[in-house]
Design a protein around this nucleic acid. Structure first.
Length: 828
RNA sequence: GCCGAAGUGGCGGAAUUGGUAGACGCGCUGGACUCAAAAUCCAGUGGGGCUCAAACCUCGUGCCGGUUCGAGUCCGGCCUUCGGUACCA
């Protein structure tokens, strides 16, 4: 070959556009990523949270979620697994509808258009998706099964309607589930402050599964943080319910407490301002003030009310209850720090052992009685820790746990209380007063009441023509053809439910539908559902920790209970990619800090962009966006391409051995051979654990080592290059395929997956550097044979000038030797 | 307030079980190539001291202590940032 030609190759830039198109077309034409779902040996279901197509573009977050996850899936594929990696669209939801209100473009039209655009971009990214399993939730073939699911839940009493105070977003013009209200009382979607309204709405009874949702957390491989969040959200507390009799009446007030052992210290009672008994028991003397207080609460927002920094307020009702253990009258107060939505809406106040009660008692001069002995020198106010009971008659001397047992026994014996478990978890409110979602399959009949739509009449199709102006009513009500129907039971005129379902219903089971999105005999093919769940690896944002991920677990357990799947959990291993911020803030249109990935994809190609995102830092940490450094990855790709271009057809011309004997290699060859195997070993471990940054770094190190590749015999070069191509293929799939082909391989690497075994004997070095320390300070490094013993090493150490300098005239106290690592001499 | 994660060069970040801090990359500096530039390649690059230079010394992983022959890593006490949560009885 002429020097001229070699130089030409060396200066030729990696033509990413041509090569990406070439391989994308090849993969698609040959259906390389079509998964055989009947092959269950070595199956892996790798799932990424599907796309919410609220805009026509893939943003940085999508790339960051999908690129690295796809690389992991590809890595598994090359290692011989039967990997199922699907993609789809979470296509219902508010943004499309809000967009329609603004522009007049119908949600269906804009959504389908967005999906088309996004599909092109996802393909451009070079994902290993099985396009035959692509799905979108906004088509009747999909949402029909949301309706079917609803009916199954309804049959079991797990879908029900109730009138309750619910969260209403004035901007989204719909109710929200509790999980969709952020901690500052704002709407998760639009940030508007949510208000409370009393409305009759549909709920899914997730609370029936509370205990199992807790138990299941022990069986899944999820980030501890996420499991803790679910644990806290479910909020199990063990305690007791106790009835207190109202003095001078037959009324009883039930309270819930986690500290029944402190019953003797209950010096007053507090009711939530909404408690139904208040009007009845308030004495006429206090009536006006109580009413005033209740009014003042009504005008407060939820945020103000539940603010912990706010000073406690409350008012006496004039009434008393009898403490069942002391038989003393204790006053009944009402205060907004007691919530009607938790427990019974009433508490016994034990200021001695509860900080909130102490604060309240101090402010309103209510009696405080300690019933748990604080340790000597305790200077705090309420004592909430463990200790022996005091001032508690028959409980005296018992520590908290024993005292609880004894008092509960006593209460149960007397029939005035019982052991109780309370959960913070509320039922899932699924009604939405919006258009772009799944219609609720219920008919309201004047004669028969609520009538479920018969299953054979599903789907209840979402009509195209509606008026989706936000006026607080459901847009579907504006379409008479939709609303007016016949009662399936009595045949008389009836009306359809005009609300739609929360879109979290769609996403609660989509991973099952992927297995065969065209299946028309049920929600999904139960055989496949049983074979392919739980999903092995699920990757998505941590913001779904208590919404989507909790709902999906609930629905999965329900589907198991009706026999459609046989696994207990939907997602075995969960990984959260970090968030990519820009200028320290989450990217959003309103902040104007959105970075468009296309500018980089167009300039460097998708392989470089993907790999750069992986190289930026630990996957689970995310970080602030910066394009500094993308050129480094680009250079690496260029060098890789040049390397393979200058070694074309090496596989054919100089076939490599499977393994080389180190003894027979020259020093230069040995070094490279070792480095190749060490890198292979490293890349395997790093990619397996989603540590892509260090995997890319290892490959960069290896290509640096290849500077001396020319000192190797040709078949050994092949050995090195083959392995390099295979290792880079998951991280830069188009480049990987190209390199593999340049080496002279006929088959696409993903068509016929290849991975090489590590030659373990090559991981060990002949000679190693030992750090020599004097009193723990590094004074020298010496090179010795691998696995040298202490005596041999000591000889080298003690004859080294740098060491002698420090140990002469000194007394050697101790010598610590760690083979192949350290030799530390302690002198006095 | 409570729970969790993080804090390492100019920057992004590496560092099995405590064992040579700063891998890899960016940037920067110098050099080669070029009429010149870009690109590419080569060399250097934590701070300070000493030196023509090297060798060498010294300080260094948010702060203060501790354990240890040895601490980025373990323990105690703080500070900052970012997530989660918010009177749940």
């Amino acid at each position: 070959m002429t020097t001229f030609f070699t130089n030409l190759l060396k200066t030729m830039k990696y033509p990413f556009q041509e090569i990406e198109t070439k391989w994308q077309t090849f993969w698609e034409d040959k259906k390389v990523y079509k998964t055989d779902l009947t092959d269950l040996e070595k199956k892996i279901y790798c799932l990424v949270m599907f796309i919410y197509p609220s805009a026509a573009k893939m943003h940085i977050g999508h790339w960051y979620n999908y690129g690295p996850t796809d690389s992991w899936a590809r890595f598994k594929k090359l290692r011989g697994y039967n990997v199922f990696e699907p993609i789809g669209y979470d296509a219902f939801g508010l943004p499309a509808e809000n967009y329609a209100i603004k522009t007049g473009i119908h949600p269906k039209d804009s959504t389908l258009k967005n999906i088309e655009d996004i599909r092109v971009m996802v393909k451009h990214m070079g994902g290993m998706y099985d396009w035959d399993s692509e799905l979108m939730t906004c088509v009747p073939e999909y949402y029909r099964w949301n309706q079917w699911l609803f009916l199954q839940l309804y049959k079991k009493g797990l879908a029900y309607r109730k009138n309750a105070p619910v969260n209403w977003c004035p901007s989204c013009q719909t109710v929200l589930a509790r999980e969709q209200v952020l901690n500052d009382g704002s709407c998760e979607r639009c940030g508007t402050t949510v208000v409370q309204k009393n409305l009759t709405q549909w709920f899914f009874k997730i609370t029936d599964y509370a205990e199992e949702l807790l138990d299941g957390l022990n069986k899944i491989d999820w980030p501890e943080k996420t499991k803790t969040m679910q644990l806290n959200w479910i909020g199990k507390s063990i305690g007791a319910e106790v009835d207190f009799s109202v003095s001078g009446t037959n009324d009883k007030i039930k309270i819930f407490t986690t500290r029944p052992d402190t019953l003797f210290g209950a010096t007053y009672m507090v009711l939530a301002p909404e408690h139904p008994l208040i009007d009845k028991l308030t004495t006429s003397e206090f009536k006006q003030k109580v009413d005033e207080y209740k009014d003042s609460i009504k005008s407060m927002t939820e945020i103000d009310r539940t603010s912990t920094v706010k000073e406690k307020t409350g008012i006496f009702t004039g009434a008393y209850v009898i403490n069942p253990v002391t038989n003393k009258n204790i006053p009944i107060w009402i205060a907004d720090y007691v919530l009607m939505t938790y427990g019974t809406g009433a508490i016994m106040a034990v200021p001695g052992q509860d900080e909130r009660d102490w604060e309240f008692a101090e402010k309103f001069n209510l009696p405080i009685l300690r019933t748990v002995q604080p340790p000597d020198g305790f200077e705090g106010k309420a004592f909430t820790e463990n200790g022996p009971a005091i001032n508690s008659d028959f409980l005296n001397g018992l520590y908290v746990e024993d005292a609880k047992k004894k008092i509960i026994e006593w209460l149960e014996e007397k029939g005035i209380g019982k052991h109780t478990i309370n959960y913070r978890l509320r039922d899932w409110l699924i009604s939405r007063q919006r258009y772009w979602g799944t219609p609720i399959p219920i008919i309201h009949c004047n004669e028969c009441g609520l009538v479920p739509v018969p299953e054979d009449q599903l789907p209840v199709e979402l009509p195209y023509n509606v008026n989706f102006k936000p006026d607080g009513g459901s847009p579907l009500a504006s379409n008479p053809e939709f609303v007016n129907t016949k009662c399936p039971k009595c045949g008389k005129e009836a009306k359809r439910d005009v609300d739609t379902m929360d879109t979290f219903v769609d996403s609660a089971w989509y991973y099952l539908r992927y297995l065969n999105p065209k299946y028309d005999k049920g929600m999904f093919d139960p055989e496949l559902g049983k074979a392919w769940t739980p999903v092995d690896t699920y990757v998505g944002g941590a913001e779904h920790a208590v919404m989507h991920l909790l709902y999906a677990r609930f629905i999965h357990k329900f589907l198991r209970d009706i026999g459609l799947v046989n696994s207990d959990e939907p997602f075995q291993k969960l990984i959260h990619q970090g968030t990519i911020t820009n200028l320290g803030a989450k990217m959003s249109k309103s902040k104007g800090n959105v970075v468009d990935p296309n500018q980089f994809v167009n300039e460097y190609g998708s392989d470089v962009f993907r790999m750069y995102m992986m190289f930026m830092g630990p996957y689970e940490l995310g970080g602030d966006w910066s394009d500094k450094g993308i050129v480094g990855v680009d250079r690496f790709v260029q060098r890789t391409y040049t390397l393979f271009n200058t070694h074309q057809n090496y596989c054919k011309k100089y076939p490599a051995s499977v393994k080389y004997n180190l003894e027979e290699l020259s020093e230069a060859e040995k070094t490279i051979y070792r480095k190749v195997n060490q890198t292979l070993d490293k890349v395997e471990v790093e990619v397996e654990h989603f540590r892509f940054n260090t995997a890319v770094a290892a490959l960069m190190e290896l290509i640096n080592e290849f500077k001396s590749l020319d000192e190797c015999r040709n078949d050994l070069k092949t050995y090195c290059l083959q392995r390099f191509a295979v290792m880079i293929a998951p991280l830069a799939p188009h480049l990987g395929e190209e390199c593999w082909q340049l080496l002279g391989n006929k088959q696409s690497i993903y068509q016929t997956p290849v991975w090489f075994d590590v030659d373990k004997s090559a991981l060990i070095e002949d000679r190693v550097n030992i750090a020599v320390q004097i009193n723990g300070k590094l004074r020298a490094t010496i090179e010795v044979a691998n696995n040298s013993d202490k005596e041999t090493t000591a000889k080298f150490v003690k004859s080294d000038e740098r060491v002698i300098k420090y140990i002469q005239d000194k007394e050697i106290v101790k010598e610590i030797f760690v083979p192949n690592k350290i030799y530390n001499i302690v002198v006095k």
